[in-house]
């Protein structure tokens, strides 16, 4: 399957410090969720920054739809079809849900296309339609996250980059958020997901990639990674295949 976004042998870091990513590569096929897991400091968020154009790699290539887009600005990356949903809550809290969603389609100048996208995201995220006129800051954390997802889909991106979407959410809201990630995937969007809640993320993803010290430590189908005894011990906090109560998740 052709990759929507591909990072090839990326070396990247901050300032003059040692590189955080040391020859990292990953490819996200269309209509799939690829999940990056790994310990703190492994470089997961740095991968997303490079993919979104927020951090220029020192070496390596970034391909979107087969086109080399290495070094493009965040705005041009957005135009190229890469949307980023930031960690935590990034809605414009004192603007309505409608205004937030429309801001996501700010680069769309065709009003008909804009209306179509609004209808599309309203259909995909019912809470967006239900709370259309409400101030975004008054929504719950899970609802705000869905508004962010809807906003990111307004430009009909090839790829959505999600940075810890379950952060700060209760288990119920986390379940809803992961269900929405699957819906985005089912709608044909490629999703690159970074998540601390590794078990939950791998249950949602098609492919997984374990990052350690800026390199790929393990990669493969998410179900295989979940069943991998080494991964279970190191990163998932338990024996492979061992189911934890829902209350402990999230």
């Amino acid at each position: 399957m052709a990759s929507e976004i591909e990072l090839v042998d990326i070396q990247a870091g901050y300032g003059r410090a040692a590189p955080v990513l040391r020859g990292f590569s990953v490819a996200v096929p269309a209509g799939s969720v690829v999940c990056l897991v790994g310990p703190n400091g492994a470089g997961k968020s740095t991968v997303l920054k490079v993919a979104a154009g927020l951090l220029r790699p020192r070496s390596g290539r970034l391909l979107v739809g087969g086109r080399d887009v290495t070094g493009l600005s965040p705005q041009r990356m957005l135009a190229a079809g890469v949307a980023l949903v930031l960690q935590g809550h990034s809605v414009f809290r004192e603007m309505t849900v409608a205004e937030n969603v429309r801001l996501g389609g700010y680069t769309l100048t065709d009003q008909k296309r804009l209306a179509e996208r609004v209808d599309f995201v309203k259909g995909l995220f019912p809470v967006v339609a239900e709370r259309w006129g409400a101030l975004a800051g008054l929504l719950s954390g899970g609802q705000q996250k869905q508004v962010e997802f809807a906003r990111s889909l307004m430009v009909d991106p090839r790829v959505v980059l999600l940075d810890e979407p379950s952060m700060g959410l209760d288990p119920k809201a986390t379940s809803t958020v992961f269900a929405q990630v699957r819906r985005m995937r089912d709608a044909g969007t490629a999703v690159l997901l970074v998540e601390q809640n590794a078990r939950r993320a791998l249950e949602t993803a098609d492919l997984g990639c374990v990052l350690d010290l800026g390199r790929v430590h393990l990669a493969g189908p998410a179900a295989d990674l979940l069943a991998d005894p080494q991964l279970g011990e190191l990163y998932l906090g338990g024996r492979p295949g061992e189911k934890r109560p829902a209350a402990q998740e999230g």
Binding site: P74, Q75, L78, L84, F92, E99, R102, L103
Partner: peptide, 22 residues
């Protein structure tokens, strides 16, 4: 207007507004 929407986004969070293409 659309222009006003962009301006209000700047008021709330300029960096975020820029990241969305404003």
């Amino acid at each position: 207007s659309r222009f006003g929407l962009g301006l209000k986004a700047i008021r709330e969070d300029e960096d975020k507004a820029e990241a969305l293409g404003t």
